[in-house]
C-alpha cells in the first residue's frame, strides 16, 4: 500500500515534468500544424543551458531559467524564420522529415561541442521531505510547482492578452485571422519562440534529476507526441492530465514489474496511444480525430 502511494506520488512528480515538457510540442502542433521531431533536442538544449550556466557562473537551475528562456526563445524565433516558416500548412510528411533532419543536426552539434559524456546539474533545493510513509524529493516537487505556474501563466496569457488571443485565433482559422488583420507570420514566429522557450525551461528543470547528454531527446519527443495525440492538440489542461497519466503509468510499471526500467516508458506510452487511437480515434479529450481508419 505504501509502495503504491509512493509510486503514485512519484508518478505525479514525473507527470509534472512531462506536462511542462509537452506544452511546447502541443502548441506548435496545434497552432502551426507542425509535428516537431526536434522537440526533445530543444529540451536537451535547455538542459545543457542549465549545465553551462552552472559550470561557468555557478548558477542554480532556478535562476538559469530566466536566462535560458529568453535565449532559447530567440533561438526558436530564428529557427522559425529560417526553417519552420517554410513548412507551416504543408503536409505532415514535410514537417516530419525536416524536423527529423533538424534533430540530427542539433544533437550532433552538441555531441561535437560537449562530447557524449552525460553531465549532471546540482540544484540548491535538494533532499527529501518525509510525509507519513511517503518520501517526496524536493527537486522533483519544484519541477511540478514550476510546471503548474508556467501552465497557469500560459493560460492567462492566451486568454487575456492581445497576442494570446491572436495566437488562438490563428490556431482556429488562419484565413479568418488574417482577414481581421492579424499578421499571421509574426504570430507564428512568436508562438514558436514562446513554445521553444517553455520547452527549454522544461530542460532546465529536469537537468538536476536526469543525466544531460546530446541524445536524450528522441524518447522525450516520442512521449510528447504520445501525450499530445492522446490529450488533444494545443490543450493546456490536456497536456497536464496526459502528462500526469503517462507519468503515473510509467512509474507504476517500473515499480511493480521487476526488470523494467523507466526506459520502457516509451513502450507503455505507445501501447496506450495505439490502443486509444484504435478504440477512440478522437483521443481522450476529444482534441484529435482521423488518426486511424
Amino acid at each position: 500500500m505504501d509502495q503504491l502511494l509512493q509510486a503514485l506520488v512519484n508518478g505525479v512528480m514525473l507527470g509534472g515534468f512531462y506536462a511542462i515538457m509537452v506544452l511546447g510540442f502541443s502548441i506548435i502542433w496545434g497552432v502551426m500544424g507542425v509535428i516537431n521531431l526536434a522537440h526533445g533536442e530543444f529540451v536537451m538544449m535547455g538542459a545543457y543551458g542549465a549545465w553551462i550556466l552552472q559550470e561557468s557562473l555557478g548558477l542554480d537551475p532556478l535562476v538559469s531559467v530566466f536566462i535560458v528562456f529568453p535565449v532559447m526563445a530567440a533561438f526558436g524565433y530564428a529557427i522559425q524564420r529560417l526553417i519552420i516558416n517554410r513548412i507551416i500548412e504543408r503536409p505532415h510528411l514535410i514537417s516530419l522529415l525536416v524536423t527529423f533532419g533538424l534533430a540530427s543536426i542539433i544533437s550532433n552539434v552538441f555531441k561535437l561541442l560537449f562530447t557524449a559524456t552525460p553531465r549532471s546539474v546540482e540544484a540548491s533545493i535538494h533532499g527529501l521531505w518525509q510525509v507519513g510513509p511517503v518520501t517526496i524529493p524536493k527537486t522533483r516537487s519544484m519541477i511540478l510547482i514550476a510546471a503548474l505556474i508556467i501552465m497557469y501563466s500560459l493560460h492567462m496569457f492566451l486568454k487575456h492578452t492581445r497576442l494570446g488571443k491572436s495566437i488562438r485565433a490563428a490556431a482556429q482559422n488562419r484565413e479568418a485571422a488574417r482577414i481581421v488583420g492579424i499578421e499571421i507570420n509574426k504570430v507564428y514566429a512568436i508562438t514558436f519562440a514562446i513554445a521553444i522557450g517553455i520547452t527549454a525551461v522544461a530542460g532546465v528543470m529536469v537537468a538536476p534529476v536526469q543525466p544531460v547528454f546530446p541524445f536524450m531527446g528522441p524518447p522525450l519527443t516520442l512521449r510528447a507526441f504520445a501525450i499530445t495525440a492522446l490529450s488533444g492538440l494545443g490543450s493546456i489542461i490536456g497536456a497536464l492530465f496526459g502528462g500526469m497519466l503517462l507519468g503515473i503509468i510509467e512509474v507504476l510499471l517500473a515499480t511493480f514489474i521487476p526488470g523494467i526500467g523507466t526506459n520502457v516508458g516509451i513502450v507503455s506510452s505507445f501501447v496506450i496511444l495505439v490502443i486509444v487511437l484504435v478504440v477512440r480515434p478522437q483521443g481522450l479529450f476529444g482534441g484529435l480525430k482521423a488518426a486511424t481508419t
Binding site: 509535428i35 521531431l37 505532415h92 510528411l93 516530419l96 528522441p218 524518447p219 516520442l222 507526441f225 504520445a226 495525440a229 526488470g259 523494467i260 526500467g261 526506459n263 520502457v264 516509451i266 513502450v267 506510452s269 505507445f270 496511444l273 495505439v274 490502443i275 487511437l277 484504435v278 482521423a290 488518426a291 486511424t292 481508419t293
Partner: peptide, 28 residues
C-alpha cells in the same frame, strides 16, 4: 496489425517508437 491502423504521421511516429522500444527490450 495495430500500427497499420494508424495513418500518416501517427504511423510514422509509432514506428519510430517501435524502434526505440525494441532497442530497450533487447537491452532488458
Amino acid at each position: 496489425g495495430p500500427i497499420l491502423r494508424l495513418r500518416g504521421p501517427y504511423f510514422s511516429i509509432a514506428m519510430l517508437a517501435t524502434f526505440v522500444a525494441v532497442r530497450e527490450i533487447i537491452r532488458i
